[in-house]
Design a protein around this nucleic acid. Structure first.
Length: 576
RNA sequence: CGGGGUGUAGCGCAGCCUGGUAGCGCACCUGCCUUGGGCGCAGGGGGUCGGAGGUUCAAAUCCUCUCGCCCCGACCA
């Protein structure tokens, strides 16, 4: 392709609304442009990178035994009503009506449609398993879209779904898809890790996320040298170090002490000359139907995702100070479990491990010391609601874990029968009994993966594309476009490179050299070939790799081989 | 949805406080010049100042309402 025939318009300045580097650079490089909040055009250059990733995805998924299909973006409400998600999904589901006033939605995901497809055809265990995928545009009306392609409302996703006769067969597909994902991200040259994940409101028994490591990632992940890794929402810990010994005697009953204006645990601890770990922090939450007092050791934080799972509720929020006062009898900041007879109490194991503790007295400016868990209060539920933190012991090996940030580019689930039961997607087993299909689902954010690649591969001049995702592998820069001999030589070389099957863009613009070089660096083509009058006088061209910029010359007659050599050098570092 | 910003030429911004002919840089067009890292000179085109209403002799500027966009938070296969 010639630059003058495609549509590449770079920006000299950063767009005012771009915050993260991938968003900034992709807009500046003329790969994407914004239409509305979280809705983008994929311009020719951006689409080429997307298409290259899609090709890798198709190859690996087909190898893993998944067949491609394409489902509609617009879905009828009836299917969502069958699964129950029409009422559960909330405002993130973009609902629309047709001219007959019938309800539809723009699909944020396709469990309902795929389940409908499969249930129409599958009758027997002999027809299973089924594994299907699509690459398709999704719409989720996110509360806060941001970061360009990283969190769009409309976005391209690869979603796959598998249907099985039993859990063992699902496991086979799950492992195959996991391996396919690994190959996809490895082929893209991305530095990633897999972590155990919470299943969220998709449900299911097992779930892994694929995280591209980047400081700007929206997810926190805990990991350990032993191989354990988990999204912080899900992360367990080994046994948390015990609180220091209680100073002094353990009283026979809790004793109230005055703590005027002392609310935060650190302040009260300092005031009472205790360690924060001696405290029981009591947080009052409000669920769909009740108030809950949640107890965590004073030096720890609550993990709301774990709490939501422990309570098995869909909505959860901290209660307002007014409501806290109403349900506990004491003001915000002085809550404690003792005497909270009417409230459900959930305690983290770190709390129950305390021999004796201090906590709020449910009265203004008062705390209780000498509270003994089990003696002075009894929780309704003991559950791990502890937020893992850097340095906490690994649940597998006990060594300290580290916290890193990641971009969630893939998420795979064992769904079980969450959709097949309500939607009656069943088959007859070998004994002639009707059984629901066991399902798995497998998502991969296509635009997000490309953005993550930029996030991970750039410098202060622009993008440094990993070869497999570059919009063009090679750019041929025609300098001195006013010189007929240069135009002729560059044009001829361009044809030779094309005939050799190379993926090359010819920059034939009559721009000054500085403009061209800056654009090449900004867009980040892996291999750059320069034809200019200076080199041409010696019959030479200049080659360089974007990642190191080191320039080397070659006779123009050897140009094709020289380019191939550089591409080979880049390819040899990637899996086949 | 709560908090904080912002909207003026294609892009990035000033002007607003203190009302009085709408500006700057880049980009674009013409000519000359220059040509290996975002040249130089000269000339030129382009804006319902997000929208509606109000105050005023006069509104980009003040007031009210409204819409878009951005950031933080809650939210999120």
């Amino acid at each position: 392709m010639r630059w003058s025939r495609t549509f590449i318009h770079t920006l000299r300045q950063d767009p005012a609304d771009a915050e993260v580097v991938s968003h900034r650079l992709m807009v500046r490089a003329g790969m994407i442009s914004k239409v509305a909040a979280g809705i983008y055009n994929y311009l020719p250059l951006g689409l080429r990178s997307i298409a290259r990733l899609e090709r890798i995805i198709r190859e690996e998924l087909e190898k893993a035994g998944s067949a491609e299909l394409l489902m509609p973006a617009i879905q009828p409400a009836e299917l969502w009503q069958e699964s129950g998600r029409w009422s559960q999904y909330g405002p993130e589901l973009l609902r629309i009506k047709d001219r007959h006033d019938r309800d539809f939605c723009f699909g944020p995901t396709h469990e309902e449609v795929i389940t409908d497809i499969v249930r129409r055809e599958i009758r027997s265990y002999r027809q299973l398993p089924v594994n299907l995928f699509q690459i398709q545009t999704k719409f989720r009306d996110e509360i806060r879209p941001r970061f360009g392609l990283m969190r769009g409302r409309e976005f391209i996703m690869k979603d796959a779904y598998s249907f099985h006769a039993d859990a063992a067969d699902l496991d086979v597909a799950y492992r195959a898809m996991e391996a396919a994902y690994r190959r996809i991200f490895e082929r893209c040259g991305l530095d990633y890790t897999t972590v155990e994940a919470d299943t969220g409101n998709i449900g299911g028994s097992e779930s892994h996320e694929f995280m591209v490591l980047a400081d700007t990632g929206e997810d926190a992940i805990m990991s350990c040298a032993c191989g354990y890794g988990a999204n912080v929402e899900k992360a367990a810990t080994g046994e948390i170090e015990a609180a220091p010994p209680w100073p002094g005697e353990i009283p026979g009953a809790p004793e109230p002490v005055a703590t005027p204006d002392q609310k935060a645990v650190e302040d009260v601890a300092a005031f009472l000359k205790l360690d924060p770990a001696h405290f029981i922090k009591t947080m009052i939450f409000e669920t769909d139907e009740e108030f809950v007092a949640v107890l965590i050791r004073g030096d720890r934080e609550i993990n709301e995702v774990k709490l939501k799972n422990a309570l098995d509720c869909t909505h959860l929020q901290l209660a307002s100070p007014e409501k806290i006062e109403k349900v506990t009898g004491g003001p915000h900041g002085f809550s404690g479990p003792v005497g909270l007879a009417d409230l459900k109490i959930v305690a983290d194991p770190t709390v129950m491990a305390l021999a004796v503790a201090a906590t709020g007295a449910n009265a203004a400016d008062t705390h209780l010391v000498g509270v003994v868990p089990g003696r002075d209060f009894e929780p309704d539920l003991v559950a791990d609601v502890n937020l893992a933190a850097a340095g906490d012991p690994c649940p597998r090996c006990g060594k300290p874990m580290v916290e890193r940030r990641g971009i969630e580019v893939g998420h795979i689930f064992k769904l079980g029968t969450k959709y097949s039961v309500p939607m009656r997607c069943t088959f007859l087993d070998a004994e002639g009994n009707e059984q629901p299909c066991i399902m798995g689902c497998y998502g991969l954010g296509v635009g997000r993966t490309v953005a993550a690649a930029v996030e991970q591969n750039h410098d202060d001049r622009g993008i440094v594309w990993p070869l497999p995702l570059a919009p063009y592998e090679v750019v041929l820069v025609m300098l001195n476009a006013d010189r007929p001999e240069v135009v002729e030589a560059a044009g001829a070389l361009y044809e030779r490179l094309r005939e050799a099957g190379l993926d090359v863009l010819l920059d034939d613009r009559p721009e000054r050299p500085g403009v061209k070089f800056n654009d090449m660096d900004l867009i980040g083509f892996p291999v750059r070939v320069v034809v200019g009058k200076r080199g041409l006088d010696n019959g030479e061209i200049e080659l360089s790799l974007r990642r190191d910029g080191e320039r080397r010359s070659a006779p123009i007659g050897d140009a094709v081989d020289a380019v191939r050599g550089l591409l080979h050098e880049l390819r040899s570092e990637l899996p086949a």
